[in-house]
Computed example of a mutant assay.
Amino acid sequence: MQFDDDADLDTSQVKDQRGSRVPGGRATIGGGIAGLIALVLALIFGVGPDQLGLSSGNPESAATSSSVDQVEQSCKKGRDANTREDCRLVAVVNSTQDFWKNEFTRRGGRYTPASTVFFKDRVDTACGTATKAVGPFYCPADRQVYLDLGFFDDLRTKFGASGGPFAQAYVVAHEYGHHIQNLTGTLQKAQGGQPGANSNAVKVELQADCYAGVWAHNATTTPDKSSGRPLITRLTDQDIRDGLNAAAAVGDDRIQEKFQGRVTPESWTHGSAQQRQQWFYQGYRTGDMAQCNTFR
């Protein structure tokens, strides 16, 4: 995965709160066993903690701005994205939003941007207070993606993913898939109802995987808004394999087998490893969001 060295990065799309203290509120999810249970229940990639029954605290007690915004200071150009993890994630956010803005315009719609918040350990959101145990998530109430960068170590060490830069990009693109669903009204289908292999919750998650694949298909041809050239200049077959590997690692069946020793499809909320790979590849192969109808 390679970025244009001379491209400008738009750090305004990312709020770096890793150096912030979170005043007020309290998180009900702690470390140790409680954190591990929360991690399994959340099944990694999802929407806000309130929809998982894992939130508490005052949504108005938001984290204060960091006195040292690492992203704003360090992530200026594409060359920074080629050497730093946090800058790479900024670049992925930029590329993802450039693509969806163009796609909405092409279809006669209007895209509303979503910020990504980098945090460390815990964060207050309009969906409630969450800790890193919840994993990456999208909060529809404030239209923001939340990400503790330490999760990518967990993805490799706890869930057995091969890792790699594009595995991280897949995570970010999946969460922006939820933002697209929020803008189109699809995300509401995940709320309420029972879990299970054929539930709306699973179909929403698989569609977000497909949308991540659609972005990946178009990533090297999407023009950067400042230069007019693609911000991402190269994706290799190995990058796509890393994305597929990450998708499989967080399948409901893989997680349940690893952490509870048995697979219970009636409790699925995100889909199996095979399904997650299938729908990501469906999006990547076609590059067309119209081919992501997991509800059909």
Results as ranks from 00 to 15, higher is better:
residue 7 A to L: 04
residue 10 D to C: 08
residue 10 D to W: 08
residue 15 K to Q: 11
residue 18 R to T: 09
residue 19 G to Q: 01
residue 25 G to E: 02
residue 25 G to N: 00
residue 28 T to E: 09
residue 44 I to N: 14
residue 44 I to H: 13
residue 49 P to N: 02
residue 51 Q to H: 07
residue 53 G to W: 07
residue 55 S to N: 10
residue 57 G to C: 03
residue 60 E to R: 14
residue 61 S to R: 08
residue 61 S to P: 00
residue 63 A to T: 06
residue 66 S to I: 03
residue 68 V to G: 10
residue 71 V to Q: 00
residue 75 C to I: 02
residue 76 K to L: 14
residue 78 G to S: 09
residue 78 G to L: 07
residue 84 R to D: 13
residue 87 C to H: 01
residue 87 C to A: 02
residue 91 A to S: 04
residue 94 N to K: 10
residue 96 T to P: 03
residue 96 T to Y: 07
residue 96 T to V: 15
residue 96 T to L: 10
residue 101 K to A: 12
residue 108 G to M: 11
residue 112 T to H: 13
residue 116 T to L: 15
residue 117 V to K: 00
residue 117 V to N: 08
residue 119 F to A: 04
residue 122 R to V: 02
residue 123 V to Y: 02
residue 126 A to N: 11
residue 134 V to H: 05
residue 138 Y to L: 01
residue 144 Q to R: 15
residue 147 L to V: 15
residue 149 L to P: 10
residue 151 F to T: 02
residue 152 F to H: 00
residue 153 D to W: 05
residue 154 D to I: 11
residue 155 L to D: 02
residue 155 L to S: 07
residue 155 L to Q: 04
residue 161 A to I: 02
residue 168 Q to T: 12
residue 170 Y to H: 01
residue 171 V to W: 02
residue 181 Q to P: 08
residue 186 T to Y: 13
residue 192 G to F: 05
residue 194 Q to R: 14
residue 202 V to K: 02
residue 206 L to S: 01
residue 212 A to G: 11
residue 216 A to E: 02
residue 217 H to E: 06
residue 221 T to N: 13
residue 224 D to F: 03
residue 225 K to W: 09
residue 227 S to L: 12
residue 227 S to G: 12
residue 228 G to A: 07
residue 228 G to E: 08
residue 230 P to N: 11
residue 231 L to P: 01
residue 233 T to S: 12
residue 235 L to F: 09
residue 250 V to F: 05
residue 251 G to Q: 04
residue 252 D to K: 08
residue 252 D to S: 13
residue 252 D to M: 07
residue 253 D to M: 09
residue 253 D to L: 09
residue 254 R to L: 13
residue 254 R to I: 13
residue 255 I to H: 01
residue 258 K to I: 04
residue 259 F to G: 05
residue 259 F to W: 11
residue 260 Q to V: 12
residue 262 R to W: 04
residue 262 R to Q: 13
residue 264 T to L: 15
residue 265 P to Q: 07
residue 268 W to Q: 01
residue 268 W to A: 05
residue 280 F to C: 01
residue 282 Q to S: 13
residue 284 Y to S: 02
residue 284 Y to N: 05
residue 286 T to A: 11
residue 287 G to W: 05
residue 287 G to D: 07
residue 288 D to I: 09
residue 290 A to G: 15
residue 296 R to D: 15
residue 296 R to I: 14
